[in-house]
Design a protein around this nucleic acid. Structure first.
Length: 445
RNA sequence: GUGGCCAUAGCUCAGUUGGUUAGAGUGCCAGAUUGUGGCUCUGGAGGUCGAGGGUUCGAAUCCCUCUGGCCACCCCA
């Protein structure tokens, strides 16, 4: 309530959510890594021109949502509103596409859009994503879509719906646009106010008018305007989806807000997010992007998925028994009774070192608080085991190993504390191989 | 960016036509119980009533501005 607060549209990600958050990203890193996507880090701050040219000057993102500032050298810089332009720029500038084709890259991190904040819509939000650069194959469109869907599945998320569409080539798209305007123009007088305004700004939106569906039904359809090559590209993507059992909906109204998209575009929606902000993520092909940034032509396809919304959905749906069990620490070492703090600390920190060394997290509490309070504190941190050190334990070089859930407790000599802890946590006996596996998998279990 | 609703303890919220010292539940701390947790009882701490200005003898309450949140539009993550 008092003190300095976060800025508008920004927020802190606090535990236990932050633990869950980190796992989501770790899971994406691991999965995309298994598909052969290597990590890339690009600057959060980029030349404004990168986005105005790459993303497209007519888009909402560039027109009204950019976080732009001038640095001390008078340069116009912008906090990235999305990552694709940066990643493609970085890859082509370094000629990565001449070493391997396609270049498979993954990223995660914050993006910025100066929008009006709302639930599920923040000025700083995080995305995980991949870009597959250098080949035009529809099989790569499929690869990227399948990867996104597998990621959601691995997060235990159900109720998603994959929406796909084809925008065709740049030329086909432009032709369709003028065709649509020509179709609607004679009817301007009969259209709602929103649509009259949209006609030249974003004619594709007219098809989605909620006031009057009559005109939209007879309107020319983009799918019908695609040339044989574009059509075959799209059909191949759909064949792959069907073949591999990925459910999808073709949605001729799906457009995407960034200029660089062509051919396959897709979004992943979730049933619990209503109308306004129902997109968990999206992506598509961007064969013309490289040229707009002054590079030789180079096709690509990718996606970006919102971490904020995914976490919100998982939390809402109580699929987060995981989330509630998130551990700040697995083991709490407590001093009990009226004992010398320094002696208690010495014993506790020696045990802690051994436990941490065996791959288990633990924290100490040698404060003067009552045991009741310390045990409650251990529960609040999500600990499953408490180690209690009191007068008797110190004298006998023992520790009381207490399972918090079952409230059972046994006295254990200091030398066997580590194996007792692992037994209590239900782990296999600790050994050299265990720590290696730990490194590869997300924290917690 | 346009329009609307809202802001009181860590959290969820009461607070009468403007009236004296702003409450409850929950959580926190302590005691009952010198060493054992989600119960019970007792006590305690915790508020610039989002911020600033105005009206008034007097403002949490009325007015203005700002900040922040939520909703719709736009658009997306």
């Amino acid at each position: 309530m008092s003190g300095i607060s976060v800025s508008r549209g920004m927020r802190d990600i606090l535990p236990p959510m932050s633990i869950f958050w980190e796992q989501i990203i770790a899971r994406h890193n691991l999965l995309a890594g298994r598909y052969g996507y290597a990590p890339i880090e690009t600057p959060i701050l980029e030349a404004t021109e990168l986005f105005s040219r790459g993303v497209g000057s007519g888009t909402d993102v560039v027109e009204k949502e950019m976080y732009t500032l001038t640095d001390k050298g008078g340069r116009s810089l912008t906090l990235r509103p999305e990552a694709t332009a940066s990643v493609v720029r970085a890859a082509l500038f370094a000629h990565l596409e001449q070493r391997t084709r396609p270049v498979r890259l993954r990223y995660s991190g914050p993006m910025f859009r100066y929008d009006r904040p709302q639930a599920g819509r923040y000025r700083q939000f995080s995305q995980v994503g991949v870009e597959c650069i250098g080949e035009l194959s529809p099989y790569l469109d499929f690869e990227v879509i399948a990867l996104a869907m597998e990621f959601y599945a691995q997060c235990g998320l159900s109720g998603t719906s994959l929406q796909i569409n084809s925008l065709g080539s740049r030329e086909e798209r432009a032709a369709y646009r003028s065709q649509l305007i020509a179709y609607y123009e004679p009817e301007v007088a009969h259209m709602c106010g929103d649509c009259q305004r949209r006609l030249h700004v974003n004619p594709l939106r007219l098809l989605d008018c909620k006031v009057d569906h009559r005109l939209a039904q007879a309107a020319p359809r983009l799918i019908d305007q695609l040339g044989p090559e574009s059509r075959q590209h799209f059909e191949t993507v759909q064949m792959c989806l069907a073949e591999s059992g990925v459910g999808y909906v073709t949605n001729p109204l799906l457009v995407r807000g960034l200029d660089y998209y062509c051919h396959t575009v897709f979004e992943i929606w979730h049933e619990s997010l209503d109308g306004a902000q129902n997109a968990l993520g999206g992506g598509g092909r961007y064969d013309g992007l490289a040229e707009t940034m002054g590079f030789p032509s180079c096709p690509g396809v990718g996606y970006s998925l919102g971490v904020d919304r995914l976490c919100a959905v998982l939390e809402n749906r109580e699929q987060s028994s995981q989330l509630r069990e998130q551990l700040w620490t697995e083991v709490a070492i407590l001093s009990v009774g009226d004992i010398a703090v320094f002696e208690a600390w010495k014993a506790a920190s020696r045990l802690a070192e051994l436990i941490r060394g065996s791959g288990v997290s633990c924290s100490l509490d040698v404060s003067a608080r009552k045991v009741d309070a310390k045990l409650k504190g251990a529960l609040a941190m999500g600990a499953r085991v408490a180690l209690l050190l009191g007068e008797d334990e110190l004298r006998n070089s023992e520790v009381a190993v207490r399972l918090l859930e079952s409230r059972s407790q046994e006295q254990v000599p200091w030398e066997s504390t580590v194996s007792a802890v692992h037994r209590a946590l239900g782990h296999p006996e600790p050994g050299a191989s265990v720590t290696q596996q730990e490194a590869g998998r997300p924290v917690g279990r």
